[in-house]
Design a protein around this nucleic acid. Sequence first.
DNA 1: TCGCGTTTTGCAAACGTATTCATATCGTGG
DNA 2: CCACGATATGAATACGTTTGCAAAACGCGA
Lengths: 342, 342
Amino acid sequence: MKRKSAVTSRDVAERAGVSQSAVSRCFSPKASISEKTKVKVLKAAKELGYRPNSIARSLITRSSRTIALVLSHLDNMFYPLVVEKASLRFQAEDYHLLLFVVPEEGDFAGVMDSILQSQVDGILMMSASLTSSLAHECVETGIPVVLINRNVDFAGISQVYSDNYHGGYWVGSYLAMGGHERVAYLAGLETSSTSRHRYQGLVDGLASLGQQCRVVARGDYDFEQAREATLQLFAEPPYPDAIFAASDHMAISVMETLRHDLGRRVPEDVSVIGFDDTPIAAWPSYRLTTVRQPVDRMVEEATTLLLKQIRQGDFNAENRVLPVTPILRDSARQPARELATE
Amino acid sequence: MKRKSAVTSRDVAERAGVSQSAVSRCFSPKASISEKTKVKVLKAAKELGYRPNSIARSLITRSSRTIALVLSHLDNMFYPLVVEKASLRFQAEDYHLLLFVVPEEGDFAGVMDSILQSQVDGILMMSASLTSSLAHECVETGIPVVLINRNVDFAGISQVYSDNYHGGYWVGSYLAMGGHERVAYLAGLETSSTSRHRYQGLVDGLASLGQQCRVVARGDYDFEQAREATLQLFAEPPYPDAIFAASDHMAISVMETLRHDLGRRVPEDVSVIGFDDTPIAAWPSYRLTTVRQPVDRMVEEATTLLLKQIRQGDFNAENRVLPVTPILRDSARQPARELATE
DNA sequence: TCGCGTTTTGCAAACGTATTCATATCGTGG
DNA sequence: CCACGATATGAATACGTTTGCAAAACGCGA
C-alpha cells in the first residue's frame, strides 16, 4: 500500500501557476475568483487528486461542521430511525455526525469530556438524562445542545420532545373506558423524565374516570427486563388486566411473555399498550395499540433548532413539545363506544 | 448565551508561568515533563476550563483519530447492533466515529467524496457494495478500508464477512432433508455479494441431495418488498413449500405475510429460514430457524484489523471469513433424523 | 564544590488552510 | 486613449497545537 498522498493547496497552486490563495478561493463558494483561473485550478486539482484538508479548514474557520450525536439504546428500533433521519438531514446541510454511544448508565462524564474536546459545533442528545452539572458545563462552553426525547429541568438547554403527559393521559382514560380495573405501568429508566411524565399522565387519565394505577414495575426500557417484570406481575394474584409499557420495545416483550410464557390472551385476558409506534407495533402478530411519537417532526424540529443555534452564535434555549397521536389497534380492549379524542 | 471560551494552551501557560510547550506536554501521555510543573499546569488548566483543541492537534499529527462508519440499512436490526459494538470498541481505543448513512443505492460517490475530505484515519463500511472505481480511489488515497459483511472483488481492500456460502449450503441440505421440494429464495439487493453467495450455497446444498431452487424472488433486504414478494410467490400455484430469505429481517416479513395475509401455517404449510440470527428471530412468536452470523467476532476482527492497518502505515489487505452457526428453531420442518452438521 | 549524565524546559518551526489588505488587472464609457 | 470603478490576485498572517533542538536545570558521586 502506498503512503498517503498529502497533496496540498500549494501543490495545485504551483501546478496551476497561481497563488495558494487562489486555489483556496476556488473551493470557497462565495469567494471572488475569475472563471478563467477557476478552470485552471480545478483542472490541476483533479490531476493531482487534491481534496481540501478539512482539518486545516476547521482550524482557521473555527468550525468543524460536525455535530455530536449521543445515544444509548440502539436496540430499541425507535433510535435507529431517528439516527437515520437526523443523519440524512445533517448530511444535506453539509454537516458531519460524530456518534457517541454511551454505555447505558455508564461513564457519561467521560464521554462528555470526549465530546467537548472534539470541537463539535453542536450536540444532539437523544438519551441519558443529563445531570445538571453536565448540562451546566455544556452551556458554559457555549456549544449549542438540544435534547431530543428527553428533558432536564435546566433552563439554557433546548429540548424537543413529545407530549408524554397527554399520551399517558390518553392511555389512562382509554383503559378506564375499556373497563380495566387493575392497570399496571411498566416504567422505563428511573432517571428518564419521559417515563415519569407518561406515568403521571396515565395516573391522571385513570383518575379522571375514577380509576387508578395499581402497580408499577421497572423495565428500564430493556427487552429482557420487561420480560422479567411481566413474569413478576403475574407471579401471584391479583393479576393486572392491563399493562401500559413506557415503550413499544417493552410492550412487545410484554406481549410475547404474556402469550408464550403465561398463556394469556391479548387483549382478551390482558390489554397491552405501548408508546412510540415503532414499525414493529404495526406487524400483524402484534397490532399494538400505542401512542405515536412524531419522529419526523421531532427530528426536523431538533435539527433545525440546533442548526439555527449554531449559525447565530447568540441564542436562547427553546422547548418544543410536539403532539402525539393515539393509534388504536388490537392489543387493548376497546371501549364500548368510541372515545372522543380531545 | 455566552460566547465560546476559546481558552488556548497559551492562556494556561501564562497563568501557570510556563511555556506553551510545557502545557502541551502535559496533555501528551508520553512526553517528558516533571511532576512539579505538571501539577501547576493541570491546576491552571482546570481553573480556566482548558481543553486541548483536537483540531489543531490533528493538523499537526496528521491523524484525526476518527473513523468513518458507512452503512445504509438502519432498519434491519442487524446493523444497529454492529454499530453499537463497533462504537464501543473504537471509543475504548480513543477513536471517534463519523457516521455516514448512504441513502440506499443513492449518491454513493458524493458520500465517498465527503468521507475522503473529512480526513478520517480509516473507513469501516458495512453496506453498499463498493463499485471498484470507488474502491480504487480509496486505496489510492491510502486510507485503510475494511468492509464488513460485504465484499467486492478487488484486492487491496480488507474484508471480513461470514461464510455465506456454507450458510446457504446448510440451509439447502437442511431443507432437502426435511423433504421440501419447492424451495424459493428471497434475495437481497442485486448488488449484494452476500446475497449471491447465500444463494449459491443454497443451490449447491439442495443439489447435493438431488433438489433444486425453484424460484427466486427479490426482496432487496426490505421489509415491505419482502411482503410483496411473498404475496407474489403465492399468487398462483405451484406454491413454494419453503422460503429461504437472505436476512432475518425479510424472513420475519415472510412469516407475517404467510400467517396473516395468506393464512398459511409455519412450518406445517411452508418452512421459513432466515439469515443473521437477529434478536427478533428468537422471539417466541417466530422461533425462526436461521443461520447465525458471529456479530461479535465480525466486529472484533474488523475493528482490530482496521486499527492495525491504521497503526502500521504499510499493510496488506486481508480477508477474514468467519464460520456461521445453524440455529435450529421451529420455523422450518425438521428432517426425520438429525442432520449431522459438518 | 565540581563535573558529568540525565531530565526538563523554552524557542521556533511546522501542519494546510482562510482571509485581510494592498496591488494589479479588467472592462467600459467618455 | 484615458480614467476610473469593479473585480481578481498574491503576500502575509493567523488558527492552536506538536515536536526537534539546544540550552538550562537537576541529581549525585567524588
